[in-house]
């Protein structure tokens, strides 16, 4: 039996498991990306005109990304136990930097003369933020959110090591049983489904970008 055929056979016997782990990973991606976007955009907006807090928050977010993922996933177990939460916290901390970095870059990239003319016409600071600065920075911010979502798909495979579920379950069980039958098929399942999930999320976020970006600033 060729590799592909045996993989399909492996899959066809485990649709339920495939579906539930896929949903778990998707759950991580959605919850982590949304939470990180809210926090990172808020921090980016609040610090946009103040160099010190801005650079400090960027530095902290960068430090998170340098911590080895195995360590970051396990470090919170004493506090929150096993399962979803240690994984969520670790993934959340990883996802902050791309969004924060792009929020800062996007807001700094708004032409100062546009803000000046908005102020000169009598727009309040909040109106300028929500009607001018954020819409103009949005394509850049969204690009950051996309990177974070991709990052989360990949790194969430580690969640299996802290009993957090997800597609990493296939990879872990495959690795543990090598070279027994179906071990390679399990690894392939985890890798290929992660890849497909990443592609699907990427293209749906591209679509979201087109829907939420003004035609006047679309590239």
């Amino acid at each position: 039996m060729s590799g592909i055929e045996s993989w399909f056979e492996y899959l066809s016997k485990r649709w339920d498991l495939v579906a539930s782990t896929l949903l778990e990973t998707l759950g991580y991606v959605v919850s982590v990306t949304v939470a990180a976007a809210i926090v990172a955009i808020t921090v980016g907006v609040l610090t946009r005109n103040r160099a010190f807090p801005r650079e400090l928050s960027l530095a902290i977010a960068s430090v998170f990304l340098t911590i080895p993922s195995l360590a970051l996933f396990t470090i919170f177990i004493p506090v929150v136990g096993l399962g979803f939460w240690p994984s969520f916290i670790a993934l959340f901390l990883y996802a902050l930097l791309p969004i924060l970095r792009n929020t800062v870059t996007g807001l700094q990239g708004v032409d100062s003369s546009i803000v000046e003319s908005a102020k000169g016409m009598g727009m309040t600071r909040l109106q300028i933020l929500f009607k001018v600065e954020l819409p103009l920075a949005w394509p850049v911010i969204l690009a950051g959110i996309r990177v974070s979502a991709m990052l989360t798909v990949g790194i969430s495979a580690i969640a299996t090591l802290v009993a957090g579920g997800g597609l990493g379950d296939f990879i872990k069980s495959g690795l543990a049983r090598l070279p027994l039958p179906n071990s390679l098929e399990a690894i392939w399942t985890g890798v290929i489904l992660s890849l497909l999930l990443a592609l699907a999320i990427d293209s749906s976020m591209r679509g979201l970008g087109r829907l939420t970006t003004s035609a006047g600033v679309r590239s």
Binding site: S113, E116, S117, K119, G120, T124, L136, G216
Partner: peptide, 21 residues
């Protein structure tokens, strides 16, 4: 100041049109 500015037209060299509008 915002009320005042709404009563006064203001044109700057770079114009500063809103590109997304």
């Amino acid at each position: 100041p915002n009320k005042l500015r709404r009563q006064i037209g203001y044109v700057i060299q770079q114009i500063g049109l809103f590109p997304h509008r």
